[in-house]
Amino acid sequence: MSELVLLAQSGFPAPMGGLTLAHYLFVSAAMFVLGVIGFLTRRNLIIMFLCTEMMFQAAGLALIAFSRFWLNQTGQTFVIFVITIAAAEAALALALVVLLFRKRESLSADEWSEMSG
């Protein structure tokens, strides 16, 4: 039996109300997958970028859960980075969206294929 089995099935070090790491990891994975599906299916650029934010959020939840599991604050420190990157990505992506909307009067992702230079 490998290490991760023990890791996911064992409870948190301090009392956590019967929850295991697997609970949080599953919610995080489900949130990530919802973001992936939204990114693949929606055609509105703003919603596509919202879905990337949701994927960031899922990664942050997994990091916080691991940080709690190992009683180690480095995971939380990394979440600060995740939020920073998300903010930077939002600023740049929304600037691009505004630029595209001024050019094309549309938010459809298909418009990107014609926008070069």
């Binding site: 490998s2 991760l4 996911a8």
Partner: peptide, 11 residues
């Protein structure tokens, strides 16, 4: 992903 969570990764 959840298979990896519940059954583990070797090595």
């Amino acid at each position: 992903l959840s298979t990896m969570v519940v059954s583990g990764v070797r090595g």
